[in-house]
Amino acid sequence: MKARAFAYARPRTLEAAHAAFADAEGDASYISGGQSLVPALAMRLQAPACLVDLGGIDALKGIAFDDGVLRIGALTRHAQALSDPLIARHAPLLTAAAPFVAHPAIRNRGTLGGSVALADPASEFPAMMLTMDATMEIFGTDGLRDVPAADYFQDLYQTAIEPGEILVALKIPGAAPGTRIAFEELARRRGDYAMVGSGIMAQVDDGAVAQIAIGFFSVGATPVRARAVEALLTGRALDAAAITEAQAALDDDLDPPDDTQVPAAMRRHLARVVLGRLLTRIAGTPGEAP
């Protein structure tokens, strides 16, 4: 199980990376943490002629909060999502999701940018980008551009990133004071891809839902926002009746795939269970002031 031979470049700038990619005439892959790419190379499922390592590009590093937006450099490791105080404060959903991402050693190497660029529909971080209404900052031929999450995830492993473009940063609106969050996934073993998972962030004012965002993963070809459920709950008190209605409404938001291990009907059921549990937690947990 050895990768096919490839050339390797480790540029220092976005422009140089872009040029290295272009030199390979499209037969290149960017590598960031490599925790999904290297197995694919080892199994020869992918075999680019050139591997362009983004690991040496300073422009992809750093975490900063400015003007209400948390900007997370693409090279930020999963482990930093667990430990970084800025992330914990302004994007607590990421911190809540991070322990569920694979295993400690994978988290030490895998990057948030790599995960969001790959856009595995079973992954936690891409779905949380969608939930948090993050904006993806992408470097391309014409320089930097911003793509909102709603437009970013397009199909199975397909995003708004064009060939040769580089995901530079994840820009997340800072969580408002009092935001309640909850995250859960159902996996057969710790660190496995979930059968179903979800993260919720909500504002609850005077007992009623002022704002709510509900994102699911492992329910389709892309991360999914439960927008019908969000609409149903907005303005409602999060009581048992509302939660039951929300679970019933969830079917309209999901179109899960069928597979032998988790048939579509089971996935829908599990999604309802997860939604019910998360909403119960949201209803019961007073927000922590960020």
């Binding site: 925790q35 050693a105 994978i106």
Partner: peptide, 24 residues
């Protein structure tokens, strides 16, 4: 396993454990 699933290849890289099968 050569795909980061078994943990037999863990080494410390710049102070933290990583799968040496998932790093060139």
């Amino acid at each position: 396993c050569e795909m980061g699933a078994c943990g037999a290849c863990l080494v410390r890289l710049d102070g933290v454990p990583v799968h040496s099968c998932l790093v060139f």
